[in-house]
Design a protein around this nucleic acid. Structure first.
Length: 241
DNA sequence: CCAGTATCCTGCAGGC
DNA sequence: TGCCTGCAGGATACTG
């Protein structure tokens, strides 16, 4: 993990603390404790947090195990080690660069009003803007691809070249996609799972992501593979403009 | 300011 | 069957 594994530090900070709240900011998880402090976690591409009975076998690449007085263990598993687990002292939250630079929450009430004009001020491809966590925090590759498909916007189109009414629509679609995906328990492509080990079922609703070469569900043109910011970017050449 | 690429790391699918 | 290559849900540090 990028910054996991100051294991001795984590051990000394987490021992004999009570987890009082679990929060999320963008793609980061915060486990607040008493005495005050927080465990900051990012799952990267392949990370999972699992709640498991202590006697059950641990998966390979289990990097961190918290033994809870309530019984089970909270395990952090991350084969690719792109994730993060870091101790935050009180106050670090406002100074830590990975947290303090995060943009607005996609589902926050103001986002509907604030995000479209912000996107309209930028000249980068709209998809790069959606993935820029400093603008809006929490949209990843799958949901960026799906939202753009739903909104009928080509991922390579620059933010400033998209009418604000279309950006309104895009932000609406982002919110819909996220709400639906959360409702379905997320999107399991290969190794994502919920804390109980359950898979997410949004994958069956994907209409563009992972469907290059298949017909567009809206207009039947074949979906094409684009590449933006080094990331796989399927789109429909006909109905995404 | 912006775009593109490399980098961290492991697992898996596909081609030969 | 086995080896090799490229690609994967992310973030950041570079270069030009």
């Amino acid at each position: 993990m990028r910054r996991l594994l100051d294991l001795p530090l984590l051990r000394s900070k987490l021992s004999n603390r009570r987890i009082t709240a679990v929060r999320r900011r963008g793609k980061y998880l915060l486990l607040d404790t008493e005495p005050a402090g927080s465990l900051l976690v990012h799952l990267g591409m392949s990370g999972r947090m699992l709640l498991a009975e202590a006697h059950t076998p641990r998966l390979p690449h289990t990097h961190l195990v918290l033994r809870l007085d309530s019984g089970p263990e909270l395990r952090l598993v991350d084969p690719r080690r792109f994730g993060l687990a870091q101790w935050l002292n009180p106050g670090d939250e406002t100074t830590d660069p990975s947290l303090s630079n995060l943009g607005m929450e996609p589902l926050a009430p103001d986002t509907k009003n604030d995000l479209p004009p912000l996107l309209h001020t930028r000249n980068s491809p709209i998809k790069s803007l959606l993935l820029d966590q400093r603008l809006v925090a929490g949209v990843g590759n799958i949901y960026a691809v799906e939202s753009l498909w739903r909104a009928g916007i080509r991922p390579s189109r620059r933010g400033a070249r998209i009418a604000v009414t279309r950006l309104d629509r895009l932000v609406h679609e982002i919110q819909e996609v996220l709400r639906e995906a959360i409702e379905q328990g997320g999107t399991t492509i290969r190794d994502f799972s919920a804390p109980g080990g359950n898979f997410g079922y949004f994958a069956v609703r994907l209409q563009a992501y992972g469907r290059v070469g298949l017909p567009c569900p809206r207009c039947t043109s074949d979906l094409r593979e684009g590449r933006i910011g080094g990331r796989s970017t399927p789109f429909c050449p006909t109905c995404q403009r």
